[in-house]
Write a protein that binds this DNA or RNA. Structure first.
Lengths: 198, 198
DNA sequence: CGAGCGCTTGATTGAGTTCAAAAATCGTGG
DNA sequence: CCACGATTTTTGAACTCAATCAAGCGCTCG
């Protein structure tokens, strides 16, 4: 739980002693590549904090196509907020892209920690707003931008995922086909584009 | 402020006396069709509760195209949450589609009312989650659905707007051109589709 | 070592855009 | 209340970006 601890203390502003009080609200779980943490029709009873590895959430539409909603590498939380909050069956899958370790947080984790720590409550509200902002940004891209622009934005926003996530999943996240992404990359290479890592 | 009052009491669960305490946190304002309540580069200092009329928020991209983000008829609140919350300049326009009357709520309205009323705090959190859910739904549609499906979904979700909002704005909301929407409608008419109002 | 998966490439198709112009509707002033 | 100009909607034709279908290559892991 070391990452989890650092996350709560450094990011969410908990004190050491507050962390000690809440650390057993979450239980650690190993998930191997390909195994599921959530499937459609289940109500999403947990959030998953990623200690190590990489998870994703996605839906499958009527035609059988996957649409990736989110990637969650180390120190990210992934869940179906709506399902949890409204106690509705989810439409998501959540599974592991890599062998991972995560902390299961049950539905009222947030409430309990908020009750304990004002600074966590503030952090939580900030997260909600960040989430909204990123969803809004994605809508803007989907409405206004072509495949290339969306890919470039992805690289800018998630450079650390570029090398870890298979290309067809990135395509799915961007709402294009793997073939199209391959061509976008080819075109970028021709124009001598290289992502910068620093 | 009658709608505003009903909204806070019936929906958000305030008592009459709580409402009396907060009612002067908001100031009423008439906005005539076409006039702006927010423009890009301003920080969004207010939420706007729509007493009567119809507002919208939208962006304009590099190529000069409008992309409508949201419509807000009576009893809706519209704003740029991210801009307000993070105190960043907005990228939105908000203007009036019809002559409207709205209540200006300043940035800490929410905090002040939350401090006063637990039930409002709960309602507010619920609104945030609903907002997230609707954004997520829109992303799903943009990624997975064609123009016709998106239009049908719009009709289902906002039947009351269908007759009030010009078609080119609906097209903009759906992320298609007015010409395309016209063709979608023609096709639906040919198949004898009629929206149901009940 | 071979089967399967991921990525690439090519050829074709198709949904939606663009551009242009006509038809319908709206709104405003005389 | 009508008329005229402006705006919105419709229609048509050409075009474009990305999807689809199909085939081949390379890698890995069983």
């Amino acid at each position: 739980m070391n990452n989890f601890k650092r996350y709560l203390i450094d990011k969410a502003g908990l004190s050491e002693s507050e962390f000690e009080q809440i650390k057993n609200f979450g239980t650690s779980k190993k998930v191997e590549k390909g195994s599921f943490l959530l499937q459609p029709s289940e109500v999403c009873n947990h959030s998953f904090f990623v200690e190590s590895g990489l998870l994703r959430s996605y839906t499958i539409d009527e035609t059988g196509k996957e649409h990736i909603i989110q990637f969650a590498p180390e120190n990210w939380i992934i869940s179906d907020r709506s399902s949890t909050y409204f106690n509705e069956p989810s439409t998501f899958y959540i599974d592991a892209i890599e062998d991972s370790e995560c902390i299961l947080l049950d539905a009222n984790f947030t409430n309990r920690v908020c009750a304990l720590s004002v600074s966590y409550a503030i952090y939580n509200e900030k997260s909600l707003h960040k989430h909204i902002r990123s969803l809004q940004n994605r809508i803007n891209l989907l409405i206004g931008a072509n495949a290339e622009t969306r890919y470039l934005d992805f690289i800018k926003q998630y450079p650390e995922l570029l090398l870890r996530v298979p290309q067809w999943m990135i395509a799915s996240y961007l709402g294009i086909t793997p073939e199209s992404l391959s061509r976008v990359r080819k075109e970028l290479a021709k124009r001598n584009f290289k992502p910068k890592f620093d």
